[in-house]
């Protein structure tokens, strides 16, 4: 059975800006405000709706940070689920459209 891909995209309802390498994110629907650390920022910036999460973790996280691949994948899935529950990220097993991140 083929492995299911997870695609992630930034919601159009959010505001986001990088401040000294960390991303500030605010959901205009409920004004929840987050700052993302360097690793989470890398995932958020790569959330273009077209690149599978596994590929993002492999290229943007394991390629740049000293981290165990399985642990990174598990952490990334947890992070994506948390931001999805706050309406920051859209998650699908099909490619999605996304807003650019600055």
């Amino acid at each position: 059975m083929p492995e299911t891909c997870t695609y992630i995209a930034r919601s159009s309802a959010i505001a986001a800006r990088a401040l000294a390498g960390e991303m500030m994110v605010m959901n205009s629907a409920d004004s929840t405000f987050f700052t993302l650390n360097e690793v989470a920022t890398a995932i958020f910036q790569a959330a273009d709706g077209r690149t599978p999460l596994r590929e993002i973790v492999r290229d943007r996280i394991c390629g740049q940070f000293d981290v165990d691949p399985n642990e990174a994948q598990a952490d990334a899935e947890q992070f994506v689920a948390a931001l999805s529950s706050h309406g920051i990220l859209k998650v699908s097993n099909q490619p999605l459209s996304s807003e650019p991140a600055r």
Binding site: S12, I14, A15, A16, R17, S28, E99, P100, A101, R102
Partner: peptide, 8 residues
């Protein structure tokens, strides 16, 4: 402004 992801 929103396409540039400002909080407006």
């Amino acid at each position: 402004a929103r396409s540039l992801m400002f909080n407006v």
